[in-house]
């Protein structure tokens, strides 16, 4: 990395030792000084303006790229973070299933405690669980895995949550998988 100089004593005689620098000749300018060649001048001015425009565009592109890359990096970081959380949610699912299958055994009590610990950990990451029977089905938050007729609930009500949903703030990390009430013959 270039380190910025604290003091620069050699700044004034910077060109002193350059071996290859040749003195500038001014004679060329004097020779053609009579005719400025207006057409050529206009062409050159046009080219200069064009180059300046392109240069500015390139600089602006770089600036915009830098800004977008920064946003993109933040987005990807969040995405990776969530992907990792999502993978671990599968373990939470398994613990939940194990606890449910355990009945009244002491092991099941231990699993319930483990599940609470996982929930607390997720809570610290800003992740909360959602999805309860009786809620209204919302495809933004729920994924229907089956439909079942119900006498008790109107169509579109969640009858069973087969896999909990998780959200982080107002962002759905993973939709809840649900069984939804639906009387046969609704679709006319």
């Amino acid at each position: 990395m270039p380190s910025s100089p604290a003091s620069d004593p050699g700044a004034d005689d910077r060109a002193a030792v350059s071996a290859q620098e040749a003195p500038q000749h001014e004679s060329q300018q004097q020779e053609s000084g009579q005719e400025p060649a207006p057409r050529e001048l206009a062409v050159l001015r046009g080219e200069l303006a064009d180059m300046e425009e392109r240069f500015k565009r390139a600089r602006a592109d770089l600036e915009n790229y830098r800004k977008r890359t920064y946003r993109e990096m933040e987005r990807r970081l969040a995405e990776r973070h969530e992907a990792l959380l999502r993978e671990w949610l599968e373990v939470a699912d398994s613990v939940e299933r194990a606890a449910a299958a355990g009945g009244d055994s002491p092991l099941a009590a231990g699993l319930a405690a483990l599940r609470d610990q996982i929930d607390a950990l997720l809570q610290r990451q800003g992740v909360t669980r959602f999805g309860e029977p009786g809620e209204r089905f919302d495809p933004e938050r729920h994924e229907a895995v089956a439909a079942r007729p119900s006498d008790e609930y109107p169509d579109g009500t969640i009858l069973e949550v087969v896999r909990a949903g998780y959200e982080r703030g107002d962002h759905v990390l993973r939709p809840a998988r649900v069984v939804v009430a639906r009387s046969t013959g609704t679709g006319d």
Binding site: F137, P139, A144, V145, A147, G156, V180, R182
Partner: peptide
């Protein structure tokens, strides 16, 4: 959907089984 909504993409796929 039966309540008159139009869904496109992933959300539409999530409710396919009940609709």
């Amino acid at each position: 959907t039966d309540d008159g909504q139009r869904l496109v993409g992933q959300v539409a796929r999530r409710q396919a089984i009940i609709n």
